[in-house]
């Protein structure tokens, strides 16, 4: 039974830029702990004779030729944007450090 602390939840929330209230932090700590417990069932499988792999699919080396295909128009690309300006997506400025 793994239990995520409120601090761990707050740290992960910061990584994905989510602002959580204290109530939400508690709520997600419980829910995420349950998810981890569920997935931890996998740890019971003996994998000592199995090589590590990045995939469970039989696919290997899937590649395409270097060919240009038509994409979206600027209007289509921006159709779902909450804010746009002069053909750009517009977002709140994100600057790092003392710039």
């Amino acid at each position: 039974m793994s239990t995520l602390s409120a601090d761990q939840v707050r740290y992960v929330a910061e990584l994905v830029k989510l602002a959580l209230t204290d109530e939400e932090t508690e709520l997600f700590a419980g829910q995420l702990s349950a998810v981890l417990d569920y997935a931890s069932a996998l740890e019971e499988v003996d994998t000592s004779r199995v090589a590590p792999t990045a995939t469970v699919l039989p696919l290997r080396s899937v590649m395409r030729e270097d060919k240009v295909e038509p994409g979206l128009s600027v209007d289509e690309a921006l159709a779902n944007a909450p804010e746009k300006q002069d053909g750009y997506f517009r977002v709140h400025a994100v600057l790092e450090g003392g710039q």
Binding site: R64, D66, K67, V68, E69, P70, G71, L72, S73, V74, A77, L78, D86, G87, Y88, F89
Partner: peptide, 26 residues
């Protein structure tokens, strides 16, 4: 000629903003 994971043109130096996109690179 095309992008890493989709068929959009990789050469967009003089292109208007967001004119070389598709559902994959968006």
């Amino acid at each position: 000629k095309s992008k890493m994971f989709c068929g959009c043109s990789a050469d967009s130096w003089d292109a208007p903003p967001n004119s070389h996109t598709c559902p994959i690179c968006l």
